[in-house]
């Protein structure tokens, strides 16, 4: 029982981690909580659905959906956030909330407000079957796929951030935007890249969740977004490894909390963790100390 809970919690945690890196990277470079990130995650699922119903094969649909989500993320930044870079932070934060609500309702208009199933016929039949069974613990192929995709994406992301020029530029921006600009870094291009990368990963998380639970609905990004943000805070906002760790810890905590403490308060675990971390350890598990900024 406990082992199975851990497996399920770990799966959920990886999903949160994939969303959380998007929050944390954007916060790292422009210090903005991109509330609309949860909606990008939701759009990833719905775009895949639409591409599949156009007759495209699943892998192509997934790749296209990720690209489209990345484009939407970039557009979001250019249209909504970039004009407010010099404005008070409150303005950008309110805009982010507004965009989140806007995208959510746009999806409701396009795809309807009722939950839709993931097109199962697009998936290989063996996906829902168990891949591994140890005594009473089963890991399905779907879960294996989530592990594989999450690990590949995160390792890839870490390589991009630590080894490439654009990754170095991202880290430079996170440290000091003015100094980075003085060193000849094209600040807006790096921010665009950050949004694209984060949005693509968020979309992938949405796609996998909709396969895993076989459902998608326009408001799915709301709760997932908040929980992923909680994961990012738990790991230390601005820290990419922190977001990954935070996601996994939160996923396991939530599953165990629902299993052993109280299942109606399942969603409360994330809020409680978030509030407690912010109050007692605002730097999170792996983050730098955060203090009041003028």
């Amino acid at each position: 029982m406990l082992e199975q809970q851990l497996v399920n919690g770990f799966t959920l945690g990886l999903i949160y981690a994939l969303i959380a890196v998007g929050y944390t990277m954007v916060y790292g470079v422009i210090e903005l909580i991109n509330f609309a990130h949860g909606e990008i995650y939701m759009l990833g699922a719905f775009l895949t659905l639409s591409f599949i119903s156009m007759g495209l094969p699943l892998p192509l649909a997934v790749v296209l959906a990720m690209l489209a989500a990345a484009a939407i993320g970039v557009l979001l930044d250019i249209v909504a956030y970039r004009p407010l870079r010099e404005a008070p932070r409150l303005a950008a934060l309110i805009t982010a909330i507004g965009m989140s609500i806007f995208l959510q309702n746009l999806a409701m208009i396009i795809w309807g407000s009722r939950p839709l199933p993931f097109p199962r016929q697009a998936l290989p039949a063996f996906f829902s079957e168990p891949a591994l069974t140890f005594s009473d613990v089963t890991i399905s192929w779907m879960q294996m796929l989530i592990y594989a995709v999450a690990v590949v994406l995160m390792v890839g992301l870490n390589l991009v951030i630590t080894k490439t020029r654009v990754g170095t530029a991202m880290r430079a921006l996170a440290q000091n935007q003015t100094a980075a600009a003085l060193m000849g870094i094209n600040v807006n291009r790096v921010i665009t890249f950050t949004f694209a990368l984060g949005s693509a990963m968020g979309a992938m998380a949405g796609i996998m969740v909709s396969m895993y639970y076989n459902t998608m609905y326009p408001t799915m990004g709301y709760l997932a977004g908040v929980k992923a943000f909680a994961a990012a805070v738990l790991g230390g906002i601005g820290s990419v490894p922190g977001a990954m760790l935070g996601g996994v810890v939160l996923g396991i905590a939530e599953t165990l909390g629902a299993g052993y403490l109280s299942s109606p308060y399942r969603d409360g675990v994330a809020y409680a963790v978030m509030i407690l971390v912010i109050i007692f350890r605002p730097s999170g598990l792996l983050g730098r100390a955060v203090t009041e900024k003028a």
Binding site: R89, V226, F229, D267, G268, M274, I275, V290
Partner: peptide
């Protein structure tokens, strides 16, 4: 009292989490 010492963004998130807890 515990959250107002923090950056404004965190304040936004804590208040949000609190109101969701109230509904729960």
């Amino acid at each position: 009292a515990p959250t107002l010492r923090l950056v404004g963004d965190y304040f936004a998130i804590v208040t949000f989490g609190f109101s969701e807890l109230v509904v729960l």
